[in-house]
């Protein structure tokens, strides 16, 4: 772990920024010295509140740092946390930066189970060949998270622990029967995704715990999945989205919605073959939801996306 005390210069901030010698400015950009000076006059070019920065070298160090700093937060991709910090809606006293821990960024498939590390980026998940092959629906959903630049940094563990009700991946975990591995310095436990999400931005993650990986069973050969969402512009948070699971004859089908209530909503049913019957079924289920904004519209969208996801599943496209 890079000891943060080595970094302590005990030099007052003002003195530091007034000391222009310290600012490396390449010759090409001398003209911008003025900018630097302007900011040196007491205008701070930064927004997040002060925090202690810890950069562990491995998982064990990261978990120890979490245990030893009561108020510490993990910094993974930072695509949800840093906006909150920029506006000072979140002011963690310590950040434990795990973004460089490669050991947590792996994807593997063995013995009918897909293992995905907590630090796998959305774009990596979207492009991974194995995921495309065994869980095409997850590949497709990961490609819908935010925008390209966000997906290059945002992580699976970050998305799951943030638990935004309109996010694609928490619902994907519920739809795909994932189990989350939660580790802390002194313990480890497994929690089914369906029990992990407790409501609006709320999960079962305890202090000192980290989502280190998830495992997803490779779907049975006759199971088919579909995914659809509705957003005003590509990359925006979805107003409603759904995963449909068709289990083949005899089994139970399921729809898992997101964006329509506080968290993922999975409902088992036997989905009707007839379009109008299906619409009735989806409508009846959507009635139970309690969307915060535009309830009637969101419930309508819930039916629309479920039907689209159903069509995708039937075609076996993803």
């Amino acid at each position: 772990m890079r000891a943060f005390s080595d970094w302590q210069t005990n030099k007052p901030h003002d003195e530091r920024v007034h000391d222009n010698e310290q600012v490396t400015t390449s010759n090409k950009h001398q003209v911008h010295d003025n900018v630097t000076k302007r900011y040196a006059k007491g205008r701070e070019a930064m927004k997040p509140a002060v925090f202690q920065y810890v950069r562990p070298n491995n998982l064990q160090e990261a978990l120890s740092a979490l245990r030893d700093n009561a108020d510490a937060k993990l910094l993974a991709g930072g695509q949800s946390l840093i906006p909150l910090m920029n506006f000072r809606l979140s002011r963690p006293t310590t950040l434990v930066d795990i973004s460089q821990l490669k050991e947590l960024a792996t994807i593997s498939v063995s013995e009918g189970t897909v293992h995905i590390g907590g630090l796998v980026r959305h774009q990596q998940l979207h492009e991974d060949e194995q995921i495309r092959e065994v869980l095409p629906v997850l590949s497709k959903a990961a490609g819908e998270v935010g925008h390209w630049a966000i997906r290059n940094r945002g992580t699976l563990g970050g998305s799951l622990s943030h638990a935004d009700p309109a996010a694609e991946l928490p619902a994907a975990m519920v739809a795909l029967h994932a189990t989350l591995l939660l580790e802390s310095a002194d313990s480890a436990r497994e929690v089914p995704a369906e029990e992990f999400f407790l409501g609006f931005l709320t999960t079962d993650l305890q202090d000192g715990e980290m989502i280190t990986s998830v495992k997803i069973p490779v779907p049975a050969p006759n199971a088919k999945y579909g995914f659809a969402e509705f957003a005003r512009r590509p990359g925006d948070f979805a107003l409603a989205g759904a995963y449909v699971e068709l289990s083949g004859e005899g089994g139970t089908d399921a729809v898992t919605w997101f964006g329509v209530s506080g968290g993922p909503e999975r409902r088992e049913l036997s989905i009707a073959k007839e379009t109008s019957d299906r619409a009735e079924q989806f409508k009846e289920l959507a009635e139970e939801f309690d969307p915060v904004e535009d309830p009637a519209y969101r419930k309508h969208l819930a039916v629309v996306v479920a039907e689209q996801a159903y069509q995708q599943a039937r075609k076996g496209q993803a």
């Binding site: 490396t24 400015t25 950009h29 900018v35 002060v50």
Partner: peptide, 24 residues
């Protein structure tokens, strides 16, 4: 090019690029 800069951990990369390195 390598740039040696002194930063607080809370400084965003965008701000360091602009205000410390001068790449506006």
């Amino acid at each position: 090019e390598n740039h040696s800069v002194e930063v607080e951990p809370r400084m965003l990369l965008a701000d360091v690029l602009r205000h410390e390195i001068g790449l506006t």
